[in-house]
Design a protein around this nucleic acid. Structure first.
Lengths: 326, 326
DNA sequence: GGCTTGTGCGGGAACGTTCCCGCAACAATA
DNA sequence: TATTGTTGCGGGAACGTTCCCGCACAAGCC
């Protein structure tokens, strides 16, 4: 406290905050003294007075088994950084937390809310937080969580748009590679694919990757390409490095795009630098983050005004890998 | 406060913290009541009492121009997550902050310390923080910052180990691709490369990438490979996707490893899944993070015991791309 | 000059904890 | 029984801020 300046704590507080009725002389004197002695108001005390800490927790649910690997996925890297950016723009800071059962470690943090990215159906993070009266926000909605807000993408629309594009480019046997997951998004993708194939009268060919990660997905791609009926298009709905997929295709005698039209669901920027560049379906992590933070801040500051959920559009980035050369 | 339980605040506090002299009956009663009404002690108030918030800020300096893109680099993704994990293990939480001049946004955060990852020579983050009496920790040391602690890798040793390996595999014209950066690490790498070439009597060939990022680095690799004297080995000391480098090499008529031994400085896990798998030099972000947090916590909790800096070893992961098939 | 209105600043309380100490009640000892 | 020690709990202060209000003084009005 700058009682150094010969002023009261009240006056100093008002001077630094620009509030209260103070003469310009006194205000400047307080500020000057603070500057001189490097005084900065104690953030914790302000939080205590204010009743909130402007701190948001951030957990990724899908990787509960390997709590700290999610950032290696370009989707989560972008989602995370965009969330932090959007939050900070509105005056909130993001705290990175591990998934898993060690919720005790968060108890010492004054979190105003927690964002659970991609919660899986069977873990208890969301329930635990709601029980502790901490507001919860998720991307990817989870059924049966009445108290939670969510942001999601329209999986069916995205799949249909992509498959329509592939068909327009001449695909008649488009295959789908998908992780073996119960996430709402993946379930939605599979359903949409089947429905589309049925509606178009085209054969369906689905290969499931055992788990997420480059290794299993690459193997699944290889399986899809070496199967009995060679597909003429491939839609990979799993985090995998696009150049890696391209390499696998080449290794197995495919020429992209002449023998195989390729689309990857990916945020990986390497897709632009391959030859040919790979068409990607972006799930818009930056948009998801922006919408989620907007929802969160609205709920936090204006009570429960606004919707419980928001749907965000996807973006199909068409590049040479899915364009017939004809 | 659980005066609901018919107890005093003091007693409740002691009961929940496991401190004080309380009869088991009273202690259990307090805990039971807290559980029943979902009471959790206010974290902000505890911080105020304790005098610290157990909160650590985290900034990446190198990307001040594009504040939120660093997570797309596997190195920083791993460094960030490992830092968060190590910090949390010791009871500290990590807050992600943007680089740039908007330090005002952090003023409201009760940060016990700030980690500045890869500070660039010419920005003022470190000075600003030290002026605000906030302890600063950096990976990659910066000269002339007496108050700051640091963790670094031995660039010279890493380069020599790698070049020795390449020479042992038959390389006589090893080229170096490097970003055009003044970072201490890159400067050290270049110096070590030149020294090694001179000592071995081998010609040096250096190509600088205009900036970081896959695009510029890929172009630099292409330049190196299409230059007048075809190199027989390539050391890429820049964040770039290994499969992309492999593709560029193939496109330019190189067979890896027969025509070209390839080593990438990279943490990218795709290196394992290419054919051939790519040899990588890991800068050990997880080790850097662990060492940095250990240093930080020691300094924070025991005053200034311990060293100001720590050197962390690198790891050369030899794979088929740098092994002569003979 | 008395009365009201406005300005400039400070005192006290409160935010929710934890720490220090004091005060009962009871047991052990003389 | 008087003295000392121990156990079990609560009262009060303090952490550093901000908000509410009150007080002194000056200026305007009749």
């Amino acid at each position: 406290m700058a009682r150094e300046a010969g002023l009261s704590k009240t006056t100093v507080s008002a001077a630094l905050n620009g509030t209260g009725r103070l003469s310009p002389a006194v205000r400047e004197k307080a500020r000057e003294t603070a500057r001189r002695m490097g005084y900065r108001p104690n953030a914790t005390a302000r939080q205590l007075r204010a009743g909130r800490a402007r701190l948001i927790g951030y957990v990724v649910g899908e990787f509960a088994g390997a709590p700290w690997t999610f950032l290696e996925s370009p989707y989560f890297a972008q989602l995370t950084s965009a969330t932090a950016a959007a939050a900070l723009k509105r005056g909130y800071a993001l705290v990175m937390l591990p998934a898993g059962e060690l919720h005790g470690e968060w108890a010492d943090l004054p979190l105003d809310a927690v964002i659970v990215a991609d919660p899986v159906a069977d873990d208890r993070i969301v329930e635990d937080l709601l029980a502790a009266r901490i507001p919860v926000f998720t991307d990817r909605s989870v059924e049966g969580r009445p108290g939670a807000h969510w942001v999601d993408v329209d999986a069916a629309a995205a799949v249909c748009e992509t498959l329509d594009h592939l068909k327009a480019q001449g695909a008649r046997r488009p295959a789908l590679v998908l992780p073996d997951s119960t996430t709402r998004f993946h379930v939605g993708v599979l359903a949409a694919y089947r429905e589309w194939c049925a509606a178009q009268g085209l054969p369906e060919q689905v290969v499931l990757a055992a788990t997420a990660g480059n290794g299993p997905v690459v193997r699944a791609v290889e399986d899809a390409l070496t199967g009995a009926d060679r597909p003429d298009a491939l839609l990979v709905v799993a985090e995998v490095s696009p150049p890696l997929v391209l390499e696998v295709a080449r290794r197995n005698g495919y020429d992209v795009p002449d023998d195989l039209l390729l689309v990857c669901v990916s945020e990986d920027t390497t897709a632009v630098h391959t030859q040919p560049p790979v068409t990607t379906l972006s799930l818009g992590p930056r948009e998801v983050a922006e919408a989620g933070i907007e929802l969160l801040v609205a709920a936090l500051e204006q009570g429960h005004a606004g919707p419980a959920g928001v749907l965000v559009p996807t973006r199909l980035q068409v590049r040479a890998s899915s364009l017939r050369t004809s």
